[in-house]
Nucleic acid binder design. Structure first.
Length: 263
DNA sequence: AAATAGTTCAACCGCTATCAA
DNA sequence: CTTGATAGCGGTTGAACTATT
């Protein structure tokens, strides 16, 4: 692949945008849209590369951008999403309307990382349970074991729980890395506030059929909010080697899998 | 008031994914 | 299937700003 010449060699401008440039870009996009970023600056009469224009629009000029500091609630969401997704800033931005990936990344590096560091390890251990995924030796089945790390969790009846996926999504592969296992998970779901009975009742969530059937069973049982649709190859925790850490209120279901959970 | 250190955040860089030819 | 163009992503940088000495 031949790399496109850099902006400077093309005689294009770099660095901070002027209000005039902002005005030109905004007007052009409002009138014509942004079908082709590479062609846009020339058409708009800007001495910028398409990449720079795109970034300026996406991170600053877009009308739906929310300016100003993050609220405490937004920060909490970022922390939880980071716990789930790792450094997938754009995916996080999709969950925070009006916030950009760049903004979230900056807030994480400048505020939240430090704050978490200060709070760790005590508060972290209290809030988390550990999800241990163990490889199955010779079959396409794998086990997901959820353990409570603390009895002082938000819901009093959550001292233990187990879940098992019997997956057929991994096909004929015989050696499963943890990433392979993660790839078998389709959706990660965030539970809203729930009452104690949820954790004490045994829930019949067994299904041999498709995940849509399973999903409808899940939905009938609990008011789930979809947080993230897993895609093959994406990591959902930064410390997979040590087992995955999830926030306490997470639930997982497997694509096209027989699954049973007992809470 | 000046110098220095620390922080913030917009913008850039390099890479990968995707798609069309 | 291969190649090349483009979009988009995450990591990094550095200028501007703020706090401290």
């Amino acid at each position: 692949m031949v790399r496109a010449p850099c902006c400077e060699k093309m005689g294009l401008k770099k660095g901070p945008w002027t209000p005039e440039e902002d005005q030109i870009l905004t007007s052009f996009i409002q009138e014509h849209g942004h079908g082709n970023w590479r062609a846009l600056p020339k058409q708009a009469g800007l001495l910028r590369c398409g990449k720079s224009c795109r970034l300026r629009w996406v991170n600053y000029l877009r009308p739906d951008i929310k300016r100003g500091n993050f609220t405490r609630e937004e920060e909490e969401i970022v922390i939880e999403l980071h716990e789930l997704m790792g450094n997938r800033w754009s995916a996080m931005a999709a969950k925070l309307p009006g916030r950009t990936d760049n903004e979230i990344k900056n807030v994480w590096h400048t505020h939240l990382k430090k704050r978490l560091k200060q709070n760790q390890p005590n508060s972290d251990a209290k809030r988390k349970r550990k999800l241990n995924i163990t490889e199955s030796d010779s079959s396409s089945n794998f086990n997901v074991r959820m353990q409570s790390e603390s009895n002082n969790l938000g819901s009093p009846a959550c001292t233990s729980s187990t879940g098992t996926f019997s997956s057929n999504t991994l096909g004929d592969q015989t050696n499963y890395s943890q990433m392979d296992i993660i790839n078998g998970l389709e959706e990660i779901v965030l539970l809203p506030e729930i009452d104690e009975s949820f954790w004490t009742e045994e829930v019949p969530l067994q299904s041999e059929s498709s995940n849509s059937t399973m999903a409808s069973k899940f939905d009938q049982s609990f008011p789930f909010d979809l947080v993230e649709t897993a895609k093959p190859g994406n990591a959902y925790s930064s410390n997979l080697d040590d087992g995955m850490d999830f926030w306490f209120n997470l639930y997982i279901k497997a694509e096209d899998s027989a699954a049973s959970f007992v809470f």
